[in-house]
Design a protein around this nucleic acid. Sequence first.
DNA 1: TAAATTTTTAAGGCTTTTTTAAGGTTGACA
DNA 2: TGTCAACCTTAAAAAAGCCTTAAAAATTTA
Lengths: 225, 225
Amino acid sequence: MQVLVVEDEKRLAQALKQILTEQKYMVDVVHDGNDGLDYALSGIYDVIILDIMIPYRDGFQVAYELRKNKIDTPILMLTAKDTVPDKVSGLNSGADDYMTKPFAPEELLARIKALTRRRGEVMLDETDFGDFNFNASTCELSKDGKSVHLNFKEAEILKLLLANRDTIISKEDIITKVWGYDSDAGSNNVEAYVSFLRRKLNFIQSTTEIKSIKKMGYRLEQKND
Amino acid sequence: MQVLVVEDEKRLAQALKQILTEQKYMVDVVHDGNDGLDYALSGIYDVIILDIMIPYRDGFQVAYELRKNKIDTPILMLTAKDTVPDKVSGLNSGADDYMTKPFAPEELLARIKALTRRRGEVMLDETDFGDFNFNASTCELSKDGKSVHLNFKEAEILKLLLANRDTIISKEDIITKVWGYDSDAGSNNVEAYVSFLRRKLNFIQSTTEIKSIKKMGYRLEQKND
DNA sequence: TAAATTTTTAAGGCTTTTTTAAGGTTGACA
DNA sequence: TGTCAACCTTAAAAAAGCCTTAAAAATTTA
């Protein structure tokens, strides 16, 4: 779950980052409207926390531009002002929610949760592929009677593979989605986890495999015998 | 169980809070329609008690906006007026029940119970799981002849675990549902209570266990021997 | 008000996850 | 066919997450 924080007050930005990081969000921080727009246009974020009073391009403009560019990432506007006109223009410009400073970390978290929940992007709990079944809500990978538990990163990677079942997903993508945008994980990290996953697939005697395509990435494949 | 009270009459709001708190509901009180809508949009409440005549945005509008935003928290409308036209527009705007002031605390509680029961998320008083039985109204956890009393938080957590018996419930969720979304409880609080619960399960010699799944949460599981 | 119970806090120890690193395979291509 | 980069696997080190406890603090009860 990736969050972009656009906030010029360095201290607050840092605090936000810490709060969010503690809750396992992957956080990127930028300090002005131009960078905010640039980053947000990438479309990789699940939520954007956007201060209104920021340099170069204010929060309203950023939100407006994003919507104009068909980026529908939920936006949580942040401001010191608590006047009704502001609320209205925040919501008109495309924001999804609105919060006034100062705020309790818990309130922030609750609102972010509400915003991400509202999109219904939750995975189906159970997915079948090839000859195995993966239950995302329990992290159980199973075939016939046998089953194994996947740990957090294994599960995240398998989810990605399942979500991209018909295309090749690159290690780069896996890294940014599982480790985060600016992590310093290398391709060997992915390789190690893919190896763990393969061992577990093997353990439940699945014939489905994670195929590696050199220089391109991975893809789930069902051996047809 | 979390309740939001939207009522501008301070004295009544306070009384409501007290009545509900005594019954172990977690209560948040706000005094106008704007705050009411803001809070309610978080989606964390199990019931909303909504006065109609409140500042900025009346109860009907709040209810309407909530439903428009796909928040389906049950709403109990509250008003001094007892006219039919009002009842109709209350229910049209998305309210689930309707009560006129003044009212007896018992009536309020009964209606809240009815509303929450309707969603199927209140438990039957007695629940069996694995090899134990839990009586929610007496907070007794028992197996065979043995039994222990659970205190409030232990009981709430066990109820959550029981209500989510087939999935993993996160510590976050446990915190917001048991301590409230703006509490400053940390994950260690949950861990401590889980530990207490385990000791009690152990005490009555249950073989059911609260399994911990790292970075994800907890789940009730029956060891099959 | 004292006693009892519930709740929070904090610390040390343990387990699992995650990273790192090194040596072994593979397959494309000259 | 030999070379080389990409990839695989594995062990072990490092880090993170969790458990349990005791004791302090807060709350409720008598």
